[in-house]
Design a protein around this nucleic acid. Structure first.
Length: 1171
RNA sequence: UGCGGUUUAGCUCAAAGGCAGAGCAUUACCCUGAUACGGUAAAGGUUAUUGGUUCAAAUCCAAUAGCCGCAACCA
């Protein structure tokens, strides 16, 4: 059997992907990549669950490429990397989709459609695009376990969430409180921040704004004691309807305030007002300052004013004022009834106050603003909610009772209550300025009506209680990029507020808390078993047919409406109902480390070994989403997890314990690398790893940036610039797409997606690598190379082989270093560079003849083995990024040689560095050769002498012996590549060339400081003589200066960079310290040889045009030609050898020949293939 | 509005205080017994702007502007 490498017509990446997809399924390659690592150390990856309710986009492809390449890489390093997939199935987008589909609104749920049917519908549509997701997952080559994914709506999953919640409840982290939330009176529902972020919710509207005056009745400080007349605090509002609910005024403690004596522009009464100094110009004309008060008449354009005192905001704190709009419902008694011990109508301080707009004194109505609520609570102002949930004033608010604060009902006769309030205040000498004010205000996206901020009951997780822990733990997380961790995420943690968990929706995880009607007693349920016991208990205790539907089999579905039908019994025997809230869907995904394994009810051992994650990756938009909820729950549940694991004796075998031991440098017995050959690296097992502390949910997190269109715009359906990932992958193949996404920019930078870039990747990287393979098999098949010969030790191979193998090992090193550091972009770029600049365009280029000339023996085998090794190693190196092409390449090679027992490159171990093969001086030398060739070719171009024309000599000045030695070592390569007969190395002591010196800024700058500029100029002037002096001994640069008393400046050889300035009589070219000078004389002999080579080239073309086999022999006839014949005769042997001609005849006339031209001379040739 | 990021050749990106460099695209020529690629050259830059630190700044600092994102939009 003579195995042949498969040859291909052309590179077709999509076809390769297709083929490999089939192969992988047939051979269960993915499953095997995991089972092969059984017993090895695990590398834990968490999949952030996508929602199959939307279509996958190109941005999913980049984050999944990132995830996939890390997992594949770690697998190839010998880790066992399980990747459990998951689906995010709850939440608002799904509900909204269903509502839209059914043509209903939230209010209809429970009325025109039962909650049961509604949720059934939600469950149906959740997986609407699952097929599309499966397809993209498959086609892009994302290996993830989708056979047993976690699904957030499943009972087991919810049960784990309940466990988490009950643990939080037990630890006092779960509490109920009133908070101010966006609320749509028109729709009668609270709005989530997500809903508020719908496009178009923020609109520019004109509202009546008012600057109103609060009359001071008791000063906090004696500052204003001497002032005669009433003093008012000025405050501005765009929502006058909140004024009756005012309970405080907030000032900035460090802001400067002034007391101004002036007149009210509406009532013309003399008044004293306080406002921020910085805002005076907003309300007072400069000309009016200290203007004549005596002659002021009401209605005058210019209102006189005068600063009569000033102070800091802190000094105002505690000042008491008269309630602006006293009402029955808002009386002090009522306020104290609602909030016992409240102390309203005071000036308080708050950091949020600015002097950007308003008056620097903020009207504070705790019920209608989040800031207001917070400072109100802090300062015990109480809370007054004079507007009901329909958006109208409640009873007993005087003349405003029952009036809507905005026109929520589209009433054509609606009179703006805000105007009426303003008018009233004007009349009462309580308004200073009333005007229409245009601002940006959020609206309910469904009703288009303005929202208000309104106090609503909600359940919270006390994340503030673990803030310190979260901040500390965050420092142990390896963030890529680091700035996201310290910046965006760090800041977020520093300013963390309690997590509002409540959602008043239908399709989601119900909050497992039951309360008595009086709210005195409550229970948090932590498991289905517990719930079923409580169900029975309640049925027995309360009777009345309660819970009958749930007695026999227990509860079967943990969603609404079923959970809401269950009545439990309190310890004191009262019935308890479930609080109607669902929980934030982010809790669902944040709890996936536990819930994906149904922890702690099942799979405890699995959980123990799979927590925390070594690595997660998602888009940067998840920083405050999934990254946060994972982290928060990790911090909150640290003790609970530890207790659970210890309970079952799993603690000492857990990953947490193991990582902690590993991190603190102790030996761990938790995991043993199995019998596989893999050994994790010497220090720890993950580069960039920080010290581990229990409580973190993930150790490394990569947040990738956005994908923009090629113009840098965000992709949106509206702009129609969305890239369809299916199209892209089908057209260019997954490998080129993945490679492009990874190597174009660091994953965390935003990526301007341009198809042209993928095409370039396809051509340049994959095309080159493919052709290198094609080149290899072209000759390997001829010679029957199957790597059956003994491995030739690297040191016994020609230098060029040693060089490419050294370069290859350097590449392996670079790749590993970068991949370990989660810098795939750097790794990929290094691979590109190697394939393109080293392997294809230098090694193969220079070695072509070795493959098709000569016998199949040492040198040729060495070439084959070397090239084979490069290709095979590359197949492994690129496998994480380009899984299909890599496997294709690997299998094409391995099929013939059978060097490895595995059937997929993804079952291989990642290449390791052979340091003994790395020869840095050799690599540098080769670089020198490449540079030299490039210079010589540039000279040839300049004088227009083609490379095929041999030239006699090139001069290369060597600045030192080392350089001379290096050039000599690569002399042959340079000569062959540039078609030059000899290289004359000019040693530094020659007086033939003129040298020039340049200052070495790095060494000299430190020494000289300010004198640097002068020295650089001085050095420019050096001639050969001085340069030589400096090179041989330290040199005094400022002789003249020293004579006049300056400090001596001594420079040495290392302070100079020496260049060649000129070689008289020759064309020169230079790059850095390297210079070449070309002898361009073409002698007759050289001319003849040039002609011969040109002739060979023409004949080769003819062979190619006629599709001759590489080994076909030919007979050639040429018509006699005066200009060329001497050349052809002289080089006849050479020519015949090159073109595989058995004969080369000259005939006087050729009738059936091809016309060619050799160096401007026409020639007719006849080529005949010999059978 | 605040916070963070970013701004280098027409485009995509390098350059971590020491002469700003690749690739793509354009043009011309060249090499090729590898259907790939490449080479040489032309052209393209006040490193967004302004100021500062330094002998020396794309790089460090400050401010401004544009773009992107996040959080808000409040009184």
């Amino acid at each position: 059997m003579s195995a042949r490498y498969t040859e291909y017509q052309q590179l077709n990446l999509p076809a390769i992907s297709q083929q490999l997809l089939e192969d992988w399924i047939k051979s269960a390659a993915f499953e095997k990549s995991i089972s092969l690592r059984e017993g090895n150390e695990p590398f834990v990856f968490y999949e952030g669950p996508p929602s199959a309710n939307g279509m996958p986009g190109i941005h999913h492809v980049i984050s999944r490429t990132l995830k996939d390449l890390v997992c594949r890489y770690k697998t190839m390093q010998g880790f066992q990397v399980k990747r459990k997939g998951g689906w995010d199935t709850h939440g608002l987008p799904i509900e909204l989709g269903v509502e839209k589909e059914l043509g209903i609104t939230k209010e209809d749920i429970g009325k025109s459609i039962s909650v049961e049917d509604y949720n059934k519908k939600c469950r149906e549509v959740v997986m609407r695009f699952k097929d599309k997701w499966d397809e993209i997952t498959k086609k892009m080559g994302y290996w993830v376990d989708l056979d047993s994914p976690y699904v957030t709506f499943e009972n087991n999953y919810i049960e784990s969430l309940w466990w988490c919640l009950s643990e939080l409840y037990k630890k006092g982290y779960l509490y109920e409180s009133v908070s101010i939330q966006p609320y749509s009176p028109a729709a009668g529902t609270g709005l989530s921040s997500h809903e508020l972020n719908q496009p178009g919710t923020y609109k520019d509207v004109k509202d009546t704004s008012a600057v109103v005056m609060f009359k001071i009745i008791e000063h906090a400080s004696p500052l204003f004691n001497e002032v005669s007349g009433d003093i008012f605090l000025m405050a501005w509002t765009t929502t006058p309807w909140t004024l009756p609910s005012n309970l405080g005024l907030t000032v900035g403690p460090t802001i400067d305030y002034v007391l101004i004596s002036t007149f009210n522009p509406y009532t013309f009464l003399p008044i004293n007002v306080i406002l921020a100094k910085a805002l005076i110009p907003k309300y007072f004309k400069a000309e009016g300052e200290n203007a004549d008060v005596e002659h002021y008449k009401g209605g005058d354009k210019l209102i006189p004013w005068k600063i009569i005192a000033s102070c800091k905001g802190k000094d105002l704190e505690g000042t008491k004022y008269e309630q602006l709009i006293p009402t029955e419902a808002g009386s002090l008694e009522k306020i104290k009834e609602i909030t016992p011990g409240a102390n309203p109508f005071r000036v308080i301080t708050g950091d949020f106050v600015t002097t950007e707009d308003g008056t620097g004194i903020v009207h504070t109505a705790p019920a209608f603003g989040a800031d207001d609520f917070r400072v109100g609570q802090k300062n015990n102002l109480g809370i007054l909610t004079l507007v009901d949930r329909q958006g109208k004033f409640i009873d007993a608010v005087g003349e405003f009772s029952g009036r809507y604060v905005k026109n929520y009902k589209d009433d054509p006769a609606y009179v703006d209550v805000n105007v009426d309030i303003s008018v009233k205040l004007k009349k009462e000498n309580r308004a200073f300025k009333v005007e229409k004010y245009e601002h940006n205000y959020p609206h309910c996206w469904r009703t288009d009506k303005p929202i208000i901020y309104y106090p609503l009951d909600a359940w919270f997780i006390k994340t503030t209680a673990v803030k310190e822990r979260m901040v500390e733990l965050n420092k142990t997380i390896n963030w890529k990029p680091a700035s996201t961790g310290t910046g965006r995420f760090g800041n977020w943690l520093e300013n963390v507020v309690d997590w509002n968990l409540s959602r008043s929706r239908y399709w989601g995880t119900p909050l497992p808390i039951w309360k008595t009607d009086d709210g005195e007693e409550q229970k948090c349920i932590g498991s289905v078993e517990q719930l079923n016991q409580e169900i029975k208990k309640a049925a027995a205790a309360l009777g009345n047919g309660i819970n009958t539907d749930y007695l026999h089999n227990g509860i079967l579905d943990l969603h609404k409406p079923y959970v809401d039908e269950i009545i439990l019994v309190s310890d004191s025997g009262k019935p308890m109902k479930r609080v109607p809230d669902l929980i934030d869907v982010w809790f669902d995904s944040g709890a996936m480390p536990y819930a994906q394994w149904h922890f702690p009810f099942e799979n405890k051992e699995i959980f123990a070994k799979n927590y925390p994650a070594d690595f997660i990756a998602e888009g940067v938009d998840q920083t405050r989403g999934w990254f946060y909820t994972l982290h928060a729950l990790g911090s909150l549940l640290k003790e609970s997890v530890e207790e659970e694991l210890k309970k079952d004796g799993l603690w000492e075998t857990s990953k947490i314990w193991h990582d902690q031991m590993n991190s603190s440098g102790m030996n761990s017995s938790g995991f043993q690398a199995g019998e596989k050959e893999f050994q994790p690296g010497e220090k720890g097992f993950q580069a960039g790893e920080k010290e581990f502390q229990p409580g973190v949910a993930y150790k490394t997190v990569v947040s990738n940036g956005l994908v923009l269109d090629k113009a840098g715009n965000k992709m949106s359906k509206r702009l129609g610039n969305v890239v369809d990932p299916f199209n892209t992958i089908n057209t260019y193949g997954a490998d080129a797409t993945r490679w492009y996404l990874i190597t174009n920019a660091s994953p965390w930078d935003s990526l301007k997606f341009d198809e042209e870039g993928i095409r370039e990747t396809q051509r340049k990287f994959f095309g080159t690598l493919y052709n290198t393979y094609q080149f290899f098999v072209l000759y390997a098949n001829v010679d029957g190379f199957a790597f059956t010969e003994n491995y030739i030790p690297v040191k016994e191979r020609p230098e060029i082989d040693q060089w490419i193998l050294s370069s290859l090992n350097s590449l392996v090193k670079t790749s590993i270093t970068n991949l370990d550091a989660y810098e795939p972009t750097q790794a990929g770029r290094a691979m590109e560079e190697f394939v393109d600049a080293h392997l294809s365009n230098w090694y193969v280029r220079l070695c072509r003849r070795r493959f098709w000339k000569g016998e199949y023996e040492h040198d040729k085998i060495s070439a084959y083995q070397t090239l084979y090794e490069c290709l095979e190693t590359l197949s492994s190196l690129i496998a994480p990024i380009a899984p299909f092409f890599a496997d294709w390449l690997f299998n094409n090679l391995n099929k013939v040689t059978g060097r490895h027992a595995v059937t997929s490159v993804h079952h291989m171990l990642y290449p390791s560095v052979d340091e003994t093969v790395i020869d840095t001086p050799l690599e540098n030398r080769m670089q020198l050769a490449q540079d030299t060739c490039s210079l010589i070719l540039s000279l040839r171009k300049k004088v227009n002498i083609k490379v095929r024309q041999p030239l006699q000599k090139v001069f290369i000045p060597a600045m030192n012996n080392e350089m001379a030695g290096n050039i000599m070592l690569v002399e042959d390569i340079i000569k062959a590549e540039t078609n030059i007969k000899e290289i004359d190395i000019l040693k530094s002591d020659n007086d033939f060339i003129r040298k020039k010196a340049k200052a070495n800024f790095k060494t000299l700058g430190k020494k000289l400081g300010a004198k640097m500029k002068w020295a650089a100029a001085e050095i420019e002037q050096f001639d050969n003589n001085i340069i030589e002096q400096v090179q041989s001994a330290p040199y005094l640069l400022n002789k003249a200066g020293v004579d006049s008393g300056e400090d001596p400046i001594i420079i040495t050889a290392e302070d100079l960079e020496i260049l060649t300035d000129e070689i008289p009589g020759y064309e020169i070219a230079g790059k850095g310290t390297l210079t070449v000078a070309l002898d361009i004389t073409i002698t007759e002999k050289l001319q003849y040889e040039g002609n011969a080579r040109e002739f060979v080239n023409r004949l080769q073309l003819i062979r190619k045009e006629n599709n001759f086999e590489l080994t076909d022999r030919i007979a050639v006839k040429v018509n006699e030609n005066e200009a060329l014949q001497p050349s052809l005769i002289q080089f006849k042997d050479y020519i015949c050898r090159e073109i595989l001609a058995d004969s080369l005849e000259f005939v006087p006339q050729l009738s059936d020949g091809t016309q060619i031209e050799v160096n401007d001379s026409p020639l007719t040739v006849n080529v005949l293939k010999k059978s």
